[in-house]
Simulated scan of single mutants.
Amino acid sequence: MPIGIVSDTHDDLAAVEAAVSLFEREGVDAVVHCGDFVAPFSVTPFDADFAFHAVRGNNDGEWAVESTVEEFGEYHGEAAALSFDGTDIAVTHGTSSLVVDALVDCGDYDYVLHGHSHAHGVEERDGTVRVNPGGLPIPVDGADDSFRVATLDTAESGVDAVTHHVLDG
């Protein structure tokens, strides 16, 4: 089962539309947004032909983000525990590296998805894979220089199941 992973879209409609287009081309069955939409208008393009799940990011101060997501998807608040095709996934924004590390190290999940740093990455520790899809480029050391998202294929396992994609946003 292909799953799209996105984070830190920060009201950039061109980036959101590029992500949705990629996910549609890839034929994903679900998309997980790891937070930082910022405002509700940047949520609505995700109302597409896939299941949609989202968690709150540290810049999601607009509480109408929740009700907008819930018009067509599931809003999980600060964190989510999801299961797709027998694959267990934890999702958090990633503001706290302590929380991300605890989710990875607890051994309860196959994958832990997070954003926040705007730096894509994937690593496996003791059977759990941590995935940061990236985000919009920001002028911070370590951040990506282009917008990135990721896909996860639950038919595969480990880091080989994750593909990062560079998008024009």
Rank of each mutant, 00 (worst) to 15 (best):
D8F: 04
G169Y: 00
C34T: 11
S146A: 15
V122H: 00
D145G: 15
A48S: 14
G135Q: 11
T154N: 05
R25A: 13
Y111T: 05
V69C: 01
E78F: 05
H165S: 08
H76E: 12
A102W: 02
H116D: 06
E71Y: 04
V91Y: 00
V99C: 07
G86S: 10
V69N: 02
L113S: 06
S96Q: 09
D160E: 15
V6P: 06
A119W: 04
G57Q: 10
F46D: 01
T87R: 04
C34W: 01
D153R: 02
G94D: 10
F46I: 13
S67V: 15
E78A: 12
G158P: 08
G135H: 06
V91A: 04
H76M: 06
L22Q: 07
L98I: 15
A143N: 14
D105P: 02
G142P: 11
A102I: 10
T44S: 14
T151P: 07
G94Q: 09
L13E: 08
D29S: 11
S21H: 11
D12A: 08
D47Y: 09
T87H: 03
D110C: 08
T68Q: 12
A90C: 09
C106P: 05
D101I: 09
E24T: 14
D105G: 09
R125Q: 08
L167D: 06
A150K: 02
R148P: 03
T87G: 05
A150H: 02
E156A: 13
L113R: 06
A64N: 14
T92Q: 05
P40A: 14
N58E: 14
E62A: 13
E74C: 02
A80K: 01
A14K: 13
V65T: 07
D168N: 13
C106E: 12
T128S: 09
V6T: 15
G127Q: 07
T163L: 07
E17M: 06
V162I: 11
G115T: 09
T151C: 02
D36E: 14
H164C: 12
F147R: 05
D144F: 06
H116T: 04
V131L: 04
V91R: 00
V28E: 01
H76N: 10
T95Q: 15
I5G: 00
I89F: 02
T163V: 12
R148E: 13
F52P: 08
V91L: 03
D108W: 05
I89E: 03
H10W: 06
V100I: 12
R125E: 13
T44Q: 13
D105F: 00
E26T: 01
T154D: 02
P139V: 14
F52D: 08
E24L: 14
S157Q: 01
A90F: 02
E62H: 11
L13W: 00
W63Y: 12
T44M: 15
E26Q: 13
H93N: 10
A48Y: 08
D101V: 09
V166E: 15
N58C: 12
D12W: 04
E78M: 03
G94I: 07
A19D: 01
V100L: 10
D29R: 11
E74N: 12
V131D: 00
L152A: 09
H53F: 05
D8G: 01
